[in-house]
Amino acid sequence: MLKRQQHIVLFVSVTVLFVALTAVVALLPAHHETKRRDVMPNAQLTEEELEGQQVYIAEGCVACHTQQVRNIDMDMVWGKRGSLPLDYTNATITSALRNPATLMGTERTGPDLTDIGRRIPSEDWHYRHLYDPRSVVPQSIMPSYPWLFTSENGTLRPTQQGRALVAYLLSRKQRDLPDGIAAPETRWKTRSSTSREESATPTVSGAELYASYCASCHQPNGAGVEGAFPPLIKSPIVLGNNIDTYVSIIMKGIDANPSYAIMPPVGELNGLTAEQVVAIMNHERTSWGHSAPTVSIDDVRRALKKLQSNQRPE
């Protein structure tokens, strides 16, 4: 070999090796995933949700929020199962300027958003939160986004972009897997509560359930947010004896008082069981200085049955 040509041999070998390895660990598997034919049913985004996704991208939300539930026990607070490739089949080319985006993220400075549309289904909560995060989550360090709102005759309204973003956020619900596809096995059972291990039933700690499903709006201290979410402290419904109405509000939401936001059907969206509902109710009836008599599971079961039999016309 000519000594003068050594550099060609060296750098051609380097290039061939690097490109070959690149093909094995990036190009081929990525190509394989791109060519998948199966798509998640009912996961297509609407026009407005797609627009909202563009706002999500433009504002760089992915810098602090992930959209992936890892197949480990500690992540099961963000969804019911680990995410699968099927959850990301929506990521396709949408613009000549941008790559497709799974928006999985690598930082969780703020919460994961895979299931935010189910966890916090209230549109009004999201508007308030975007306009002034600390008005609903006092410890939050999220930026506020006043430019997604305009002031009309003294009242704040979301701009089209703001509406689209909230529509996109509300569309973030972990989908049920189609038949024949199994959820990934959940690994690293690490969360301490042994009761969870022993009983196969979902968690029934009223305080935990309240924190997960109720506290975003009604606040951890039950005081609500003035002008948006009613206080539960001294609430006649919480402390009263009308169990049917109480259960109905938890399961199906309510829109009775114009000075408060519409409450979405939190219970139905999250598939709360009678055990969970009664745990939430009794937590509310005995916290924040309350000492109302606890509700029995039978009362709640009865109320749930009634709800099912006389479905309100939609």
């Binding site: 089949t89 080319i93 790559n99 799974t102």
Partner: peptide
Amino acid sequence: VAYVPLWQGGIGETIV
């Protein structure tokens, strides 16, 4: 590899 979008559908994007 990172800027050509052809192989970046679905989680192909994340692999890349």
